[in-house]
Structures are given as structure tokens and as C-alpha cells.
């Protein structure tokens, strides 16, 4: 399997507080990796390094490498806007932009110059892929705030799909949702598997187990271990992993 995303000894600081303490990780093309860990373990920071969203936070420093398709994302002259177009992100809480459902999904394509019929097709395809089309096809002009929380989060996924990224980062996308909506989002992720390289962050071991694939356990800014879900949840190698998945902390 070729590496789609690779980090080498990635370190990150907010001011003087170190959030990542040297993460080395490989994610293959089309793979779905789950990053699991308690709050403050550096999961979100790690994701935001991959699409360079942390560039926008003042007072931060980064060391180490991020390779996307073998190319250094932080090399001199690299264009973060172009990178972010290839590396989509779904945030922890659904963040509909204050505009219509259609305009939310069309936001990304419009940025990149898509217009007219092609735009409408892109919006429909993306909403279908996010399993939202049937619920909203008759009210695309309504405000995105009129959707339920779970629908808003699937709208966020559709919005990411509309820019046709290669990699999708999902930062605890179910943390604000009820169990049924959570299930719907997980099904959506299931359907996207294979077509995209997905990195899914969760603090919930059960969710990590449900999603399957490889699981990486982060703790206090370190990568404790990384293994297929079946192995990690039956035979964890590290004591901390065992404590976490058995619910002793976190």
C-alpha cells in the first residue's frame, strides 16, 4: 500500500505548551484510519497540521514533516489553499454557514470557479454521497440552520465532498449528536470508505471498534500504539491503551 499521508516526528506547540510530541504515522491510499484518545491528547491538533489549518492560529510552532503523496506539505512555496482543497475536513460540531442548504454545498465548488449546471450536478452528487439528498431535495433554498444536528453534520460532509478532496479528516464528527444521528453519520463514513483516504478522530473506544480498520491511540501528545482494531481491542500492547479501552480513564 502506498502512503497517502505520512508524518515524521511531528511536533507542535501552542505558545510554550507542547501538544504533539513527535508523531510518526502512515496512512495508505484509500485507507480509513481511526485516531482514538482522550481530550487533550493532540488528536485535533494532529488533524489540523495535515491541512495546515493551524497556520491560522497565531503563536504556534511546528517541527517535523507532513508528507501528502510523498510531498512535503510545508515545503517553501507550497500553497496551503491548494492543499486544503485536496484535504477536506469535517469539524466536531456541525458548522453550517449562514446561507441556504444549496449554497452551503456549493460554497467550495464556487470558490474554485464551478458555475451553472455543473454546479447543480456537483451539489446533488455530494448530497447523495452524504446520504442527505432525499431529505433535503425539496428545500434546497431553506436556511441550513433549519436542519437537525445530524442532518447539519451530513451537510458538512456533503460540503467537503463537493470540492472532491482526496483525503477527508473527520474531527469527532459525532460528538454533538444523539445515538441515531451518530449511526447515520457512521453509515455515511462506511459508504465513503475506499473512495477516499479517511482519518477519523474519536474519543470513544466503542466507536473506534465499530468503525474497524486501523486504530491509532494518542495520549498526551504521543502516539502510544497503532494496530488493526481487532488486535488493539483484544490484545493491546501498552498498559495505557488497555486502561483507556477498558474505561479506566478518559
Amino acid at each position: 500500500m502506498t502512503a497517502k499521508v505520512e508524518t515524521h516526528d511531528l511536533k507542535f506547540w501552542y505558545g510554550k505548551v507542547q501538544a504533539l510530541k513527535g508523531i510518526t504515522l502512515r496512512v495508505g491510499t484509500g485507507e480509513q484510519l481511526t485516531i482514538m484518545g482522550p481530550t487533550g491528547s493532540g488528536k485535533t491538533t494532529f488533524l489540523r497540521c495535515l491541512n495546515r489549518l493551524n497556520d491560522l492560529v497565531p503563536g504556534t510552532t511546528r517541527e517535523g514533516q507532513v508528507l501528502i503523496d510523498g510531498q512535503d506539505a510545508y515545503r517553501a512555496g507550497a500553497d496551503p489553499d491548494a492543499l486544503r482543497r485536496r484535504v477536506g475536513m469535517v469539524f466536531a460540531l456541525p458548522i453550517p454557514l449562514p446561507m441556504s442548504i444549496f449554497d452551503n454545498v456549493a460554497y467550495g465548488p464556487r470558490l474554485h470557479g464551478v458555475r451553472g449546471r455543473h454546479l447543480a450536478e456537483t451539489v446533488e452528487r455530494s448530497l447523495r454521497s452524504a446520504a442527505l439528498w432525499d431529505e433535503v431535495k425539496d428545500r434546497l433554498g431553506d436556511s441550513a440552520f433549519s436542519l437537525s444536528g445530524g442532518q447539519q453534520q451530513r451537510l458538512s460532509i456533503a460540503r467537503v465532498l463537493a470540492v472532491e478532496p482526496e483525503i477527508i479528516l473527520m474531527d469527532e464528527p459525532c460528538s454533538g449528536l444523539d445515538p441515531i444521528s451518530t449511526l447515520r453519520v457512521e453509515e455515511t463514513v462506511e459508504q465513503l470508505r475506499g473512495r477516499y483516504t479517511i482519518i477519523f478522530v474519536t474519543h470513544n473506544p466503542q466507536q473506534a471498534a465499530r468503525l474497524g480498520g486501523r486504530v491509532a491511540f494518542f495520549y498526551l501528545g504521543e502516539l502510544v500504539e497503532c494496530a488493526p482494531a481487532a488486535q488493539m481491542f483484544t490484545r493491546p500492547r501498552d498498559r495505557r491503551t488497555e486502561d483507556y479501552i477498558s474505561g479506566r480513564f478518559g
Partner: peptide, 27 residues
């Protein structure tokens, strides 16, 4: 204007000026 709106725009590949004209200024 909530910071999250800007982050959504950037995360979809929007440039700074696109983010300003399409998200920040209208709001």
C-alpha cells in the same frame, strides 16, 4: 463573525480574500 465560519471556508480551499468577501463581509 464566528471564527468557525472562516475555518470552514479555509478548510474548503478558500483563500484569505475569498473567505473575507464570501463569509466575513456578508455577515
Amino acid at each position: 463573525v464566528p471564527r468557525e465560519y472562516r475555518e470552514v471556508s479555509y478548510s474548503l480551499g478558500g483563500s484569505r480574500w475569498q473567505t473575507i468577501t464570501r463569509v466575513v463581509l456578508p455577515n
